[in-house]
Structure formats: structure tokens, C-alpha cells
Design a protein around this nucleic acid. Structure first.
Lengths: 188, 188
DNA sequence: TTGAAATTTCAAAAATACTTGAAATTTCAA
DNA sequence: TTGAAATTTCAAGTATTTTTGAAATTTCAA
């Protein structure tokens, strides 16, 4: 088997198993990585064959990927098949995922914490006092993380802080220059 | 039901449902949050009763929590029951989780990427070139994230960068001072 | 318009992850 | 040492999540 096929296979498999980390189902993650591994966009028929998935599974995966803005569906004139093109600006990809997960998972946590703390103020047992103090610690930390994520989402944290940090703090290979890092970023 | 009990119940339930986010099973997360909600450490009997779990489930959960350094088992002289005390320094807790997950989940990704890229260099099709370039983008981004996480793990990123950021960039409540945020951090 | 192609839906099946509980092992007070 | 208490283990059971596939719906070239 040619290198490209075996690397693709390994890449798809790895990405699939990391789906949990991103809060994305394995199949959905595999579809995205498979698209990323190809030069041209693909239609659902090709995805089905390439990954041995059912028609419905591909439809579900593509819908989820569109919701996350990780792919876009393109209409080709003269045909009625949609072509799916993966987003390749990875910083944007990460920003999309972080934004959606923050809204879905973290914003409610902060709301809960802010509701619970005053309720524990009513009770004056030592038990309640300690619990309340711990909830306050959590609230402070979550609020802090929240504002950091917000900053990241608004202003391109990776772009502004990250490169400098990378250059100054860690050089995985001796002769790697900042240019080499930039060069690796695919233009959209 | 008194406020402390209903808040505890809600807190335990919320934490349990967020276990996935941290890569921790629901029951394990519930045990930790239950311990956090109490002033005193508890033994496994008490955890069983408090959360209606089986003996085995509590044992598994406590083992996992100890591996993550989220609780420590204390031996009480004159008894042979272990008392489990939750770690309350939340920044340390987060650092533990991040460190373990990085090592388990992300370090292998970086290794794979660095193995795959040269293999695609052998092939000179346009397809392979594009795929290789995308893998390089990913590698650059993962390496960057990696070094940022490393910085966070080494030097107390939250402490050094976070507070400034919080104060300057976001004030959830008008009359909240930096002191109030600091005050909320429980001393160990 | 028409109708075949394409896509979506969703109940049921499969796969995965979690929890249990009884038995095996370990611990330590007596 | 002894043995009852405490803990751990792990195969089996339960619950949850993910995937399928056939039917319903939508789309659009002709």
C-alpha cells in the first residue's frame, strides 16, 4: 500500500479515537480527518466508500460538522450532489469548537455556581461555610478561565501570544526557525 | 430539605455530568464533588451511603481519584478505615488533570505526526503534498499548544497571567475587586 | 411540473462505557 | 500470629452512546 494510503488510514483512526476529547463522535471526527487528508472536496458517496460508512451515518456526521463550521457544503452546478470541503484554518477550527463547547457546557456551570453561593449564605453552619468557600474558589477559577477563553476567542490569542511563547519557551528541534513554523500554516 | 443538602445534590449531579469533559467517569467525578461539598474527609462507607453506590464502585472511583492526585487517603490510627480527603487547591487539581491528559493523549499525537510527515515526503503526488502540508499545520499548532501547556504546568500560568487578564478584560459584576477574587481562593 | 437523485430522519441494533457484587486478597488491631 | 474488617478485583450485568438502514422528505435537472 502506498504511503499516502497508510498514513491516511492511521490519521483517520487517530483522529477518530480523539473525538471524545473534542466532544465529537468518532465517526464524525473520522469524516473530518478523511476530508482533510484529501486534496479535493468529496461528496457523500465518496465518503461512504472511503470510510465504509452507511449513507445515514455520513449524513449525520456532515450535519454535525456543518454545525461546528468544520466543513462547508458546496453546490456544484449541473449536479445535485453536495461537495464537502473541510475548513483548513485550524486556529479558526479550534476557535469554533471552543466557542460552542464553552457556551453549551461552561456558561451554565457559572450560572449554577452564582445561584448556589447565596443560597448557602442563608445557612450558618461551619459545614455550609466551608462548602460555600469552595464553591467560591471554583467560581473564581471558572470565571478566570472563562475570561481567558473569551480573550482567546475575540482576539487570536494563538497568533499574538503563542508564537512568541513558542520561540522563547520551547524548541523541539534545534534548527527550527519561526519562519518554518509560519510556513507550515496553510493559507486558506 | 435544607439548602446545603439540595445544593450538594445539584453540585454532585452537575459535576458528574461534566466528567466527560475532564475525561473522568461520572461516578468518579461525583465522588470527588461529594467530598468537596463536605467539611470533613469521609471513608468509603460514608461515600457509599451518601451517593448510593456499591462498595466496588467507590473503591474504583477512589483509586482513579488517587491516580489523578485529586484525593489522598489518610490512615487513622486505631482504625483500619481509610479517610479520603479531597485536594482543595483547584489550580493544582487542574494542573494534575492537564498534565496527565497531555501525556496520555497529546504527546502520542505529536509523535505520530512527526513520523507521518517524512513518510509523505517520499511520495511526490500533489495529493501527498497537500496532505503533508496540512499535517504540518497541525503539527505546528499542536506543538504550539503543547509548549503553552508546558508553560502553564511549569510556572503557574493562571497565577501570573490570569489575574491581570481577569481584572483588565472582564468584570462579571461591577463592584468586584481583585481582592475578592483572591479571597475566594481557599488556603490549603 | 415531474420524478429520479440526493438527503434527512429516526426507531432499532450494535458497540462502548459504566457499575455492580461476590469472591479473593490485603491489612492490621488484638 | 490470627482472623475479622477493609479493600480490591473482575466477570457479568446495566446503561449510555453511536451507528445503521429503510422509509420519508426534499431537491432540482430535464
Amino acid at each position: 500500500m502506498s504511503e499516502i494510503h497508510s498514513v491516511r488510514e492511521a490519521f483517520v483512526q487517530l483522529w477518530g479515537s480523539m473525538g471524545t476529547f473534542w466532544g465529537i463522535s468518532p465517526t464524525t471526527a473520522r469524516v473530518y480527518s478523511w476530508l482533510l487528508s484529501r486534496a479535493e472536496p468529496a461528496d457523500s458517496e465518496m465518503i461512504m466508500e472511503g470510510l465504509e460508512l452507511s449513507r445515514g451515518a455520513v449524513s449525520m456526521a456532515c450535519r454535525e460538522l456543518r454545525e461546528w463550521h468544520l466543513i462547508e457544503a458546496e453546490k456544484v452546478p449541473g449536479s445535485r450532489r453536495a461537495q464537502y470541503r473541510p475548513a483548513t484554518d485550524l486556529e479558526k477550527v479550534i476557535r469554533n469548537i471552543v466557542q460552542i463547547r464553552k457556551r453549551r457546557e461552561w456558561d451554565p456551570v457559572l450560572e449554577h455556581l452564582r445561584e448556589w453561593i447565596p443560597r448557602l449564605e442563608a445557612e450558618d453552619s461551619p459545614e455550609a461555610a466551608i462548602f460555600r468557600q469552595r464553591l467560591k474558589s471554583i467560581e473564581a477559577l471558572v470565571a478566570l478561565a472563562d475570561s481567558m477563553v473569551e480573550t482567546f476567542l475575540k482576539g487570536g490569542f494563538l497568533g499574538r501570544v503563542g508564537l512568541k511563547m513558542l520561540v522563547n519557551a520551547s524548541r523541539p528541534e534545534k534548527n527550527r526557525s519561526p519562519e518554518m513554523v509560519l510556513q507550515a500554516k496553510e493559507s486558506p
